[in-house]
Design a protein around this nucleic acid. Structure first.
Lengths: 218, 218
DNA sequence: TAGATTGTTAATCGATTAACAATC
DNA sequence: TAGATTGTTAATCGATTAACAATC
C-alpha cells in the first residue's frame, strides 16, 4: 500500500470515474483493463498500476465489475462526502459556477458568495446570496467552511490570501490568474488558470514554427 | 535543440511568463535562476533546463534580463499572434468567457457564438452575436477559424465533435465534461474539465482518511 | 482443465536534480 | 582578475511499460 500517491495518478482518477460512469449508463457490467485502456487511450498496465494503489478491485480471468469499481473510485475521490463552499468574487466566472448545477451533485454546496462591488452585494442568484467582502473574515470564523472558491481579479488576491491563511479552510479552488504559494503549505489548493490553459493551447498550435525559429538562432 | 518539447515543460511556460510579468511591473530589470526559483517554488536547475529547450536567453555571471526573457517566452507562447475564435454553447461558462476581456489581450478574438437554445439565439453580448447551431458547419467552411471553444453539455458533444473532425480548425478549447479522443489526432485539444478539477481537490482533502481505509482492506 | 486477466515485480524510459566547466 | 551565474552534461529519481506468476 502506497504511503503517498503521485499527483499524476490522482489526476487520472476522475477520468476513470467518468469513463466508468459512461459504461454504466450503457448497461455494461464488466470490462478488462485492456478494453478500458483502448477506450481511454492509455495503457492497460497503467490502469492496473493506478488502481492497485488503492486496493484490488478486479478478478483474475474476469476483469473489473464496473458498478463496483465505479463506486470504489467514487469513495476514493470523496464524492460521497459533502462540502460547505463559498465563492469569493461574483463576476462572470463566479456566477457561472453558481449556476452550474453539476457541482452540487458531487456534494459541493455553495452557501453564499462575497464581492466588493456594491451593485451585486445583496442580490441573489440561484438561491445564493451575495455578501459584502468586508464580512468575509468574520464569516469564516463563525462558519466551518470546507472549500473557498476564488474568482477575483489579480489586484484583489492579496487580502483574500491573508484572510485564508489565518482560517481553517481545508481546500481552495483557485480560478484567479495568480498562484497562492503561501496557502499551499497550509491547505489544499487546486488551480484552474484559464489564461495559462489558453497559452498552452496557443503554444501547441504554433509549436512547429516556433521550434524552427529557435533552431535558426542556435 | 530539442525536436519535441515535453508537455510538462510547455505547461510551465505560462507560469514563467506570469512571474516575469509581475517582476516587470515592479520595475525589476534582472533576475537569476536561483532568485526566480525561490519566488516560484521550483528548482533553479529546472528553470535553466526549461529555457534552454528554446535558446540561450541568459548571460553568465549576470542572470536573465527580465524584459528580454519576458518577450522571448511571449513569442514562444505565440501571444504575438492573433486567433479567430468562436464559442459553441452559450451557457454560463460560454458567456463568462466572452465577458472576460483578458483573452483578447492575448490575441484571441471571439467572432461569434453558437447555441441551439432559441431564447439566446439572435441576442448579443459584448458585441458577440449568438447564431443558431444549425449554421455551425457551414460557418466553419466559409470562415477560417483558428480556435473553437466548446462549452456545451455532455449530450450535445457528439454532433459538435463530428463537425469539428471534418473542419480545418487548428485548436479546440474544451470545457465540456468529455474527452475528445477522435479530435486529438487531427488538431490540438486543450481540456479544462472543471468536474475533474473539483474531484481532484476533493481527493486531496480526504487523502489521509482514504489511504487509511485502503490500508485496512489490504 | 484451459483460457483469460488480474496483481505485482522487474525493466525501461523520461524528467528532475546536481555538478561543473564555460564565460560574462 | 575574482565572483557570479549561466548552459550543459552526468547522476538520480520517479513514472510508465513490459512481463509473468497467481488465480479465477
Amino acid at each position: 500500500m502506497s504511503e503517498h500517491i503521485s499527483l499524476a495518478v490522482i489526476k487520472r482518477l476522475p477520468k476513470y470515474y467518468r469513463y466508468l460512469g459512461e459504461l454504466l449508463d450503457m448497461d455494461i457490467t464488466k470490462i478488462s483493463s485492456k478494453d478500458l485502456s483502448e477506450k481511454m487511450g492509455v495503457t492497460a498496465s497503467q490502469i492496473r498500476q493506478d488502481l492497485n494503489n488503492f486496493g484490488s478491485f478486479g478478478l483474475q480471468g474476469y476483469g473489473y465489475n464496473i458498478e463496483l469499481l465505479y463506486s470504489e473510485i467514487g469513495k476514493i475521490l470523496g464524492i460521497d462526502r459533502s462540502y460547505k463552499a463559498v465563492i469569493v468574487g461574483f463576476g462572470n466566472i463566479g456566477q457561472a459556477l453558481v449556476n452550474h448545477s453539476l457541482f452540487s451533485k458531487r456534494g459541493v454546496d455553495f452557501i453564499c458568495a462575497f464581492d466588493k462591488d456594491q451593485t451585486v452585494v445583496g442580490t441573489e442568484l440561484n438561491g445564493i446570496k451575495v455578501e459584502d467582502i468586508s464580512g468575509f473574515k468574520d464569516f469564516l470564523e463563525e462558519n466551518e467552511i470546507d472549500i473557498v472558491t476564488i474568482a477575483v481579479p489579480k489586484h484583489s488576491i492579496g487580502s483574500i490570501e491573508k484572510i485564508l491563511y489565518n482560517s481553517n479552510v481545508k481546500g481552495v479552488w483557485n480560478f484567479s490568474n495568480c498562484d497562492l504559494n503561501s496557502l499551499e503549505e497550509k491547505m489544499h489548493v487546486e488551480n484552474v488558470n484559464l489564461m495559462d490553459s489558453l497559452m498552452t493551447l496557443s503554444y501547441k498550435m504554433n509549436e512547429k514554427s516556433i521550434l524552427e525559429k529557435c533552431n535558426v538562432k542556435k
